[in-house]
Amino acid sequence: MKKGVLLVNLGSPDSPTPKDVKPYLDEFLMDERVIDVNPILRNLIVRGIILQTRPKKSAKAYSKIWWEEGSPLIILSERFKEKVAAQLDIPVALGMRYGSGSIKEGLQELKNQGVEHVYLVPLYPHYAMSSYETVVVKAMEDKDAFFPEMQLTTMPAFYSNPAYVKVLSKSIKEHLDTFEYDHVLFSYHGIPERHIRKSDPTKFHCKIDGSCCKTNSVAHHTCYRHQCYDTTELVIKELGLPRDKVSSSFQSRLPNDPWLKPYTDFEFERLAKEGKTKLAVITPAFVSDCLETLEEIAMEGKEEFMEAGGTDYIHIPCLNDRDDWVSVMVSWLKEWQETDALPQTHIR
């Protein structure tokens, strides 16, 4: 069977305008794995409340980070895809979970090149309902509906793969070597606490009580919280960072709903008031810089930290299209192409 690769990232509006942001947000927020409530209630929340005001606010945020070529996430994803494709002798396509350049379009592109067996690569290091899982489910739905003859194999979450940890650590070190920090904050994308419990195959292990993530369990295969903390721990060990100068937090939450804690914006204030005035922030839940990293963390985060008493602040970019990150992905894809082997994720 002829093999091919489909890289999938989050997606983006076509432009930083309310007109284009609204349908993008509609598709994103109406996803049952993003806002996982009764469909009637979700429709009321999203279309009756959020979409009445959010598009204008989000468009303003997008306009702050928009590049001349277009959406940073799309441009960076395309650059990454081109670099990966240049080092492989099988077709490589790019799809987005939401917005233009869909997963279906990516599968069609591969089919047009005669691909029969697709290696699906969700560009998310960690497993979460609202990121990794929704990509896999959507890809399977589109395959079954439009390309039933295709075979689909999915790359596992790679948050603990040694090659990924090394390249992530190298990227972080390059910035820390030039910045006199007194604290490093690993800020991960936030999700509702109920998503952790819903993803727990045992239905009893995940208690979000500070101990379950440290107790070995099959639940860790799909526990976003555990995987985030494990990423931080692995980087600490790889770089030999002092533990009293490193912590983890979670950003981006909706009101009136318990999300993973501690909250990043609260941490900005706490750290500054505790005298940690030189802060480096890394956002490892993403491999490509996007609105959440470039506007929420690099811009708003810096402002919040400085207002709380901070003096120095850097946001360490995502891996984006770094050549060493491209090399890691290419090595995984070549191994799959030659042996059907999947990258190893070390669950602890």
Rank of each mutant, 00 (worst) to 15 (best):
203 K>S: 11
190 G>M: 01
242 P>R: 15
248 S>E: 04
309 G>W: 01
314 I>T: 09
196 I>F: 12
210 G>F: 08
260 L>E: 02
215 T>Y: 04
185 L>Q: 05
308 A>R: 15
196 I>W: 15
192 P>A: 13
181 Y>G: 00
214 K>V: 02
294 L>R: 11
282 I>Y: 07
293 T>H: 02
288 S>A: 15
237 K>C: 01
191 I>T: 04
271 L>A: 11
296 E>G: 06
200 D>M: 09
300 E>S: 10
237 K>Q: 14
209 D>Y: 00
290 C>G: 05
234 L>V: 05
281 V>N: 06
189 H>F: 08
287 V>W: 14
265 D>Q: 11
194 R>N: 08
229 Y>D: 04
196 I>Y: 13
221 H>N: 11
258 P>L: 02
292 E>T: 02
230 D>L: 13
198 K>Y: 10
305 F>Q: 05
305 F>V: 07
316 I>C: 09
283 T>H: 06
252 S>A: 12
270 R>E: 13
179 F>M: 03
271 L>F: 00
246 V>M: 06
240 G>N: 06
200 D>V: 05
234 L>R: 14
238 E>H: 06
197 R>H: 11
206 C>D: 14
311 T>F: 00
240 G>P: 14
203 K>P: 06
281 V>H: 04
199 S>I: 06
298 A>E: 14
249 S>P: 11
256 N>E: 02
243 R>Q: 12
186 F>R: 04
182 D>G: 12
266 F>T: 07
180 E>A: 15
201 P>V: 10
180 E>N: 15
242 P>E: 03
281 V>C: 07
221 H>F: 08
222 T>D: 01
197 R>L: 12
179 F>N: 04
260 L>K: 01
198 K>M: 11
254 L>S: 05
250 F>R: 13
279 L>M: 08
261 K>I: 12
264 T>P: 03
202 T>L: 14
306 M>T: 11
285 A>E: 08
283 T>W: 00
233 E>W: 01
284 P>H: 01
211 S>C: 03
282 I>R: 02
240 G>T: 06
312 D>Y: 01
272 A>E: 13
253 R>Y: 15
302 K>G: 10
272 A>F: 00
290 C>F: 08
274 E>C: 10
312 D>E: 09
305 F>I: 03
189 H>S: 10
206 C>K: 00
206 C>N: 11
220 H>S: 10
301 G>P: 14
253 R>I: 03
229 Y>H: 13
190 G>C: 01
222 T>N: 07
231 T>W: 02
252 S>I: 03
246 V>L: 09
208 I>E: 06
272 A>W: 00
286 F>P: 15
312 D>L: 02
285 A>V: 04
300 E>N: 13
198 K>N: 11
190 G>H: 00
248 S>Q: 10
226 H>M: 09
272 A>I: 04
233 E>H: 07
303 E>M: 09
302 K>E: 10
292 E>L: 02
